Simulated scan of single mutants.
Amino acid sequence: MRTEFNWHLTAWKSLGRPSPGDIIWETELLNHSELVMRKRAYQNSTLYATFPRDPCDSYVHCGGNGNSVLNSSLICQCLKRFVPGSLENWNLKDFLKGCVRRKPFSCRNDGFAKYLQLKLLDTTHNWINKSKNLVECMAKCLSNCSCSAYTDIDVRGRGSSSAIWFE
């Protein structure tokens, strides 16, 4: 998703001198947004810190259809109905291949599994509607075989916005 905005905070040089200082916090777009702290000096900058701080904060650390759980012996787990894409890599804690369906997808019989408290998926292949509630969103998703997920995106809990992802 592109917004064409570059958000950043710049420290003042000093309390009595409110002009841009050397330290800057900014969002850097590499593969996905990441918060970084830099010290600028002329044309060069030194990277001081980046966020996310733990593997579960990194986008797609567990690959597609995987879930990161910090207090688990194996930090990545496959969602219901999915298995590791490469069991050999998974056992070596290389989760980049993510998880694949346990059974081939059947448009008519699969339905959807409910997941709570997960980060939203990549927004490359999705559709957002600010006026459809969750029931309407589910009906639209069930009528399209390329629909892979749907959710309520109204964080206030009023259920007036939804998103659908397509494979």
Rank of each mutant, 00 (worst) to 15 (best):
D154T: 01
R156A: 15
A139S: 15
E136T: 09
S148I: 15
E167H: 08
C145N: 13
S148Y: 10
W165L: 12
C141E: 04
M138N: 11
R158A: 06
G159E: 00
W165Y: 11
R156S: 09
S148F: 14
V155E: 14
E136N: 15
E136F: 02
C147F: 04
A163M: 15
M138I: 13
R158I: 03
T151G: 09
Y150Q: 03
A149N: 08
D152H: 01
S143K: 14
I164V: 08
W165E: 10
I164D: 02
Y150L: 02
V135C: 10
M138D: 08
S162G: 14
N144V: 12
A139I: 14
I153S: 01
G159H: 03
G157S: 05
S160I: 00
G159N: 14
C141I: 09
I164M: 07
C145F: 13
N133H: 09
L142C: 04
S162Q: 13
C137F: 13
A163W: 06
S148G: 04
A163Y: 06
S162L: 08
A139L: 13
V135Y: 07
Y150M: 06
V135F: 01
D152T: 09
R156K: 07
A163I: 15
D152G: 10
C147S: 14
G159C: 07
S143R: 08
E136W: 08
S146F: 15
N133C: 11
G157R: 08
